[in-house]
Design a protein around this nucleic acid. Structure first.
Lengths: 342, 342
DNA sequence: ACGTCGTGCTAAATGGATTTAGCACCGACC
DNA sequence: GGTCGGTGCTAAATCCATTTAGCACGACGT
């Protein structure tokens, strides 16, 4: 609607000063000797005209655009991705920055294109996010540009935001132990023997480590460890249906490696006439949307999407932050854990 | 890594020509009289140096930045939002454009801020998206900037992308009718009498209309229409539990107004010992993630998130497109509909 | 009376591209 | 020989804001 944009020259003209003066005043530079009166006139003129600086023009001169590139392999498929984006968006907004969001589907060609598209627009920094945490290839980037890895790592750019999976793994075990579980505990989704040499993701390895260490410290052992490669509901359902044939009588608790497995497992339990948590307790990971829809609600160790997103933007903005930044995984207690049936 | 960016001047120098010539050649202008040899030299120099134009600088001159602002009230909460974004992202990528994503939480202050942040960066157009379709307030925007409403409408900017809910509503009824259902059909989520005067959302009203018309054409009537204000699983569960007391024996099919209600309802059915689809058929709307996790899978009329997102970018890019653009809602057939038990 | 210093402000360069206006040269034609 | 037209290319302006270098003026000191 409005005609065209107001420029700095317009403001200066209205204030009866040069653009130089107007620029200095609006940028709040303290070392100028401009009069109080000049200040007042410029501020007033800018307000009256509704002046907003042209970020592109400014960026040309200053090399800062208050714009960050957010490059992710996947954005829509998982709630995880959108949580990261939302966290990043919120923090960027607080800091007066803006996000250019790009998706690569994990294809190297598109990754390179995305970086270029971002750099073409003079972004101040780039965030690389992956869903399956891993060492990520990062195309070359000019010197001044901050690079932050979100749920990923890279040798050349040692700034990574990761969930504290080790502590999370421990927390899950602690929850079962605290409820009094000592026996009949099933690990659903992973079997260290069978999966030897297979790589899932950096962070999930840490989750396993946390679980293993905590089990040992509590002096506990799993009744069974079921390897499942794809952690989707149907696989949880299938595995659980099968497992119930052998372990039905001794099963007391399930430590599922994510909520989707837990969801499927619970469907199988329900169909078999077992009740959660009276007969079997369940704890799991991620705090997927599903977890809150289950009946009873699923107790789970949350993947802190949004906190990771905000941490990533913080890291771009603050060059001091460096190294591995671990974001705690909150325990979300719902109603799927109870004391074991004797 | 790389030192600093290569500029057009660098390319021109290497080709032994002026920036003017280099610019014209790289932009493929046909009306110049530059020699074939000059063309070759410039193209070669640009390739060797890895030249990429600075979009900000170009935008300053041309008022085009190949950048689109995507302003949404909510991004992470629903899968719907991220589907829209993904669709938009993909199409933008195809067209060599980039998206600045902004979130407003539906607050007018943040909406205004978001528009300004986008305009400050010289975007070519702005997409306004809402989750609950409605007439949306759009802050003033300069003349040349395209504005497209996504799942929303606005008087001043008559370019709207909307799901074809009317047809979708009809499709749901058709599905039940085709399976042979004539009686014992429950409408779950809305009661026209009780909700008279209450406004849910533009598109949902059309969904109702489609359902109503199709029912009439098939000569059918609902056994009951249950008003539920919040379409969440727990509400579906609660309503269904209650309804079963009265209608258990005659109930044959449920037309749920979204998948979350259907999900809750199905939990109630299962607990009551009724089986889907043998005892009761279910059809619903949205194609929420949940729908594929249910056992059996839920047949549903999909909200075409991604298609809507791509349509929005198309509309920004093509000034010819105008008016209400209706995107079809695909029927996703799974396994929740069967012929009625006699 | 003249140099010095502080005060208040501005001209012009800059960043990287596009675009307008026009220059220099060559051959053809009268 | 002068003019006209075409060919091949470039200087300079422009977009908008920031920044460097420095001008003009008055007061002060000696």
């Amino acid at each position: 609607m409005a005609g065209k944009r107001v420029t700095l020259a317009d403001v200066a003209r209205r204030a009866g000063l040069s653009p130089t003066s107007a620029s200095m005043i609006l940028n709040g530079r303290s070392d100028t000797r401009l009069s109080q009166d000049a200040h007042d006139r410029v501020i007033k003129a800018a307000a009256e005209l509704g002046y907003r600086p042209n970020v592109a023009a400014r960026g040309l001169r200053t090399d800062r655009t208050d714009t960050i590139g957010f490059i992710s392999d996947v954005v829509a498929t998982t709630r995880f991705a959108s949580g990261l984006i939302k966290g990043a968006l919120d923090r960027a907004h607080d800091a007066g920055h803006v996000l250019i969001v790009l998706e690569t589907a994990g294809e190297p060609r598109r990754e390179a294109e995305a970086v270029e598209a971002a750099l073409d627009r003079q972004v101040d920094g780039v965030i690389f996010a992956t869903m399956r945490s891993r060492e990520l290839y990062v195309p070359p980037v000019p010197d001044g540009t901050r690079v932050v890895l979100l749920n990923a790592t890279n040798e050349l750019h040692p700034v990574s935001i990761l969930p504290d999976e080790y502590a999370g793994g421990r927390a899950a075990v602690d929850l079962l132990a605290a409820a009094g579980h000592r026996e009949g505990i099933l690990l659903l989704g992973h079997n260290a023997e069978k999966e030897r040499g297979l790589f899932r993701s950096m962070t999930v390895e840490r989750r396993f480590a946390g679980i293993r260490d905590a089990m040992a410290e509590h002096g506990l052992q799993f009744m069974a460890e079921e390897s499942i490669w794809l952690w989707e509901p149907e696989n949880g359902y299938a595995a659980m249906t099968k497992l119930l044939k052998r372990h039905r009588s001794s099963l007391r608790a399930i430590l599922a490696l994510n909520d989707r497995l837990a969801f499927g497992a619970q469907q199988a339990l329900t169909e078999a006439g077992l009740r959660v948590p009276d007969d079997v307790s369940i704890v799991s990971f991620d705090n997927d949307e599903l977890a809150s829809y289950m009946r009873p609600g699923l107790t789970t160790i949350a993947l802190p999407h949004e906190a990771m997103g905000t941490a990533a933007v913080d890291a771009v903005l603050d060059p001091e932050r460096t190294g591995e930044i671990l974001v705690p995984m909150p325990v979300v207690e719902r109603a799927s854990i109870a004391a074991p049936r004797s």
